[in-house]
Design a binder for these strands. Structure first.
Length: 451
DNA sequence: GACTCCCGTT
C-alpha cells in the first residue's frame, strides 16, 4: 500500500529535484554499470538515450556508493558524452564525496573546477564534504586550510560555514583542533548558541565533560544563552562518559529550572540508563514521560527495545515492539535492526528471519546494518549457507554488498578453516572483487590473511 | 541543508 502511494507520488513529481522516491529503474542501471567489464561506453549505449534527471543520477550514484571507480566513470561519461544533460550541483557533491573517500585528490580538484566553470558551485555544502573527508582521514589541518581559503574558490565564509567546519572537526574527534579554531575566530564570526553547542558536543564526544562544562559556563558569561539542545547534549555527554550520577543530577536540575524537557531529553535518559544496565530506572523514566504528556517517538521505543534486548531479555523487547505497533507507531529500519539483532543474539534465528520478512512486507527496506549483522551471526554459527544466501540477496537487490560484508564472510570462513567454503563463495568474480576492494581500502583483516 | 535523541565498535 505504502509502496504504491510513494510510486504514484514520484510519477507526479517526475523531473522534480527535491522529491525523494527514485525512479524505479536506477537499480537496473546500476547493475548494468557494475556488470560492464571495463569501461562504461562499451556496454551502455543506453546511457545516451536515458531521460536523465538529477534525481535519477543521484540515485544511481548512491547505489554505486561502494563501487566508487564505476560511479565516477559513470558521472564522467555522462558529463562528457551527453549532448544536453548538465549535472546538478547535488550530483557533483556526491561525486566529490566518492572521489574524496577514495583519496583521488586530483579528481576532487577537477570536479571542483568543473563545478565552478558551470557556475553551479562549489557551495558551502561542497566544502563541508571535502573538509569532512580531510578531517576523517587524519588531515585536520588541511580541512582548516580549506575553510580559510574558501573565498578563493568563490565561496564566502560566514557563521554557518564556520559552525560547519567546527562540527566537522568535532565529529571526527579533532576536538582540540576545533577548539583552537573556535577560540581564534569566534570574535570574527560572532559565535552564537549553535557554535557553542558544537564545541560542547565535541568535548562530550571524547568524554571530556569537565571541558564541556567549562565551555557552557563561558557561553553564559559571554551572554550567549544555552538552549535545550545545549542541555540535552551535556546530558548525553554525562551518560556517554559513564557518569550516571552526574547525568541524573543534571536531569533533575533541568526539571527544577523549568526547562521544557522534550522527547530528546527523555530518550537520552532512557537510553543512558538502559545502557548502564539500569533497566528499572529506564522504564520509570519512560513511564514518567507519558505521565508528563511528552509523547514517545519511534526513537524512544528504539532505545527502549535496544536496551531490553541487551540488558534484560529479548521477549520483553518483543512485547515493547508489539506495544508500539498497537499504538500506531510505524517501526523504522533501526527498530527492526535492533530487534532482529536481539533475536539472533538469543539464538532465535527463525524468529529473526520472520521479523525481516515482516519488515519487508511493511515496506521497510533492510539496509547494510541489517544484512551485515545477520550475515555475521550466521557466519559465527557456521551457517555459511544461510550467510551466502543473504549475500546473494544483497547482490541482486538494491543494497549491494560492501567491504564489511566481504570481511564478515571471509572471517566466518576462516574461523571454520574450511577452504571449500571459499570454493562455494568463490567464483572468480568474488575473488576479484575482494582484491579490488582491498587495494582501495587496505583492510586489516584481508592483509592479516595475506589474501 | 549549521547543533542535541534511536541503529553501527570484538
Amino acid at each position: 500500500m505504502k509502496r504504491v502511494l510513494s510510486k504514484s507520488l514520484s510519477t507526479l513529481a517526475a523531473g522534480g529535484v527535491n522529491l525523494k522516491p527514485p525512479p524505479p529503474d536506477s537499480g537496473v542501471i546500476a547493475n548494468q554499470i557494475l556488470s560492464s567489464p571495463t569501461t562504461i561506453d562499451q556496454s551502455l549505449v543506453s546511457i545516451k538515450t536515458t531521460p536523465w534527471t538529477p534525481n535519477l543520477v543521484n540515485s544511481v550514484l548512491k547505489r554505486l556508493w561502494n563501487h566508487g571507480p564505476k560511479a565516477l566513470q559513470f558521472f564522467h561519461f555522462l558529463d562528457t558524452h551527453h549532448r544536453s544533460y548538465v549535472h546538478h550541483a547535488s550530483s557533483f557533491d556526491l561525486a566529490i564525496d566518492i572521489a574524496a573517500r577514495l583519496h583521488l585528490h586530483p579528481t576532487v580538484w577537477s570536479l571542483l573546477h568543473r563545478m565552478r566553470s558551470l557556475r553551479i558551485g562549489p557551495s558551502p555544502k561542497t566544502f563541508a564534504i571535502v573538509a569532512e573527508r580531510f578531517a576523517s582521514s587524519g588531515k585536520p589541518d588541511k580541512a582548516v586550510k580549506l575553510f580559510l581559503n574558501m573565498h578563493e574558490h568563490g565561496c564566502f565564509q560566514d557563521l554557518a560555514s564556520f559552525n560547519t567546519i567546527l562540527d566537522v572537526l568535532c565529529k571526527s574527534k579533532r576536538v582540540e583542533k576545533a577548539y583552537e579554531l573556535f577560540r581564534a575566530l569566534r570574535g570574527r564570526f560572532g559565535a552564537d548558541t549553535v557554535t557553542y553547542n558544537v564545541i560542547v558536543n565535541g568535548w562530550c564526544l571524547i568524554k571530556r565533560t569537565p571541558k564541556a562544562l567549562e565551555v557552557l559556563k563561558e557561553m553564559v558569561e559571554r551572554g550567549i544563552d544555552p538552549n535545550l539542545t545545549t542541555y540535552n547534549t551535556m546530558l548525553k555527554g554525562f551518560f556517554r562518559a559513564g557518569q550516571i550520577r552526574h547525568a541524573w543530577e543534571f536531569f533533575l536540575e533541568m526539571k527544577k529550572r523549568n526547562c521544557e524537557i522534550d522527547v530528546v531529553t527523555y530518550t537520552t535518559v532512557v537510553h543512558g540508563f538502559g545502557v548502564a544496565g539500569e533497566i528499572k530506572r529506564a522504564r520509570n523514566v519512560f513511564d514518567e514521560m507519558i505521565r508528563e504528556g511528552v509523547l514517545p517517538s519511534v526513537a524512544t521505543y528504539n532505545a527502549m527495545i535496544q536496551v531490553l534486548c541487551k540488558k534484560d531479555c529479548v521477549e520483553n523487547a518483543v512485547v515493547m515492539f508489539e506495544d508500539m505497533v498497537r499504538k500506531g507507531y510505524e517501526p523504522n529500519v533501526t527498530t527492526y535492526n535492533v530487534l532482529i539483532r536481539g533475536l539472533f543474539h538469543a539464538g532465535k534465528f527463525s524468529r529473526g528471519e520472520e521479523l525481516m520478512q515482516r519488515m519487508e512486507n511493511e515496506g521497510c527496506k533492510p539496509n547494510f546494518q541489517t544484512y551485515n549483522m545477520m550475515i555475521r551471526y550466521y557466519s559465527e554459527c557456521s551457517e555459511i549457507d544461510k550467510a551466502l544466501c543473504l549475500f546473494g540477496k544483497m547482490g541482486s537487490g538494491d543494497c549491494l554488498p560492501n567491504l564489511d560484508t566481504y570481511n564478515i564472510l571471509i572471517s566466518g570462513m576462516f574461523v571454520r578453516k574450511r577452504s571449500e567454503d571459499m570454493v562455494v563463495a568463490g567464483n572468480q568474480a568474488f575473488a576479484k572483487e575482494i582484491l579490488r576492494l582491498q587495494s582501495k581500502s587496505g583492510s586489516r583483516l584481508l592483509r592479516k590473511f595475506r589474501l
